[in-house]
Amino acid sequence: MPEIVLHNGSIKQDDWVVVPRPEEGESLNVPDQKALIPADLWLAGYERYAGRADIGVWLDSHQEPESLGDKVNELPVIAVNFPKFTDGRGYSIARILRERLGFENELRAIGDVLLDQLQFMKRCGFNSYALRPDKDIQKAAKCLGFFTQGYQAATDTDTPLFRRRAG
Rank of each mutant, 00 (worst) to 15 (best):
V19W: 07
S128D: 04
T86N: 10
N8I: 07
D14R: 10
A35Y: 10
G9N: 01
G167W: 15
V30R: 15
D136E: 10
L101R: 12
V77W: 13
T86K: 15
G45C: 06
K142S: 08
G45W: 13
A94C: 06
E74T: 14
K34Q: 04
I96P: 11
F126M: 00
A153K: 02
Q138T: 13
C143N: 09
Y91N: 00
I55G: 13
I4P: 01
F103E: 03
P65N: 09
E47Y: 05
F126G: 02
V113F: 01
I37V: 02
R98Q: 13
P83L: 00
K84Q: 15
G88W: 08
A154M: 03
N29C: 13
T148G: 11
F126Y: 03
R164Y: 02
D14V: 02
D87H: 02
L131Y: 00
L101P: 02
D54L: 10
G9W: 01
V5R: 00
D70G: 12
W58K: 13
V80H: 02
N29H: 14
E24K: 08
Q152C: 13
F120A: 03
G45F: 10
H62C: 09
E66R: 15
A53R: 11
C124M: 11
F103L: 07
Y151R: 08
N29G: 15
K142V: 10
L6H: 08
M1K: 06
G69H: 14
R95M: 09
E106H: 04
P83W: 03
G51F: 06
V19R: 10
T86R: 14
F103H: 09
R89P: 10
Q33A: 05
G125W: 10
A94H: 11
S128T: 04
D156L: 03
E3D: 09
E47V: 14
Q152V: 06
V57F: 02
Y49I: 08
P20W: 01
R52E: 12
R89S: 07
A130R: 14
T148C: 10
L28K: 11
Q119C: 09
L114Y: 02
L131S: 04
S61C: 01
A53L: 14
R108V: 05
F147R: 04
F147E: 01
K12I: 15
P160H: 11
L75G: 09
S128Q: 07
N127K: 03
A44V: 12
P22G: 06
N8K: 03
H62S: 11
R48T: 12
F82C: 05
Q119H: 11
V17S: 11
A44W: 15
V72S: 14
I37K: 04
K34F: 03
G90C: 00
Q119L: 08
L97Y: 12
G88F: 07
A39P: 06
R123T: 07
V18R: 12
D60M: 08
S67L: 15
L28F: 06
P31D: 01
G9R: 01
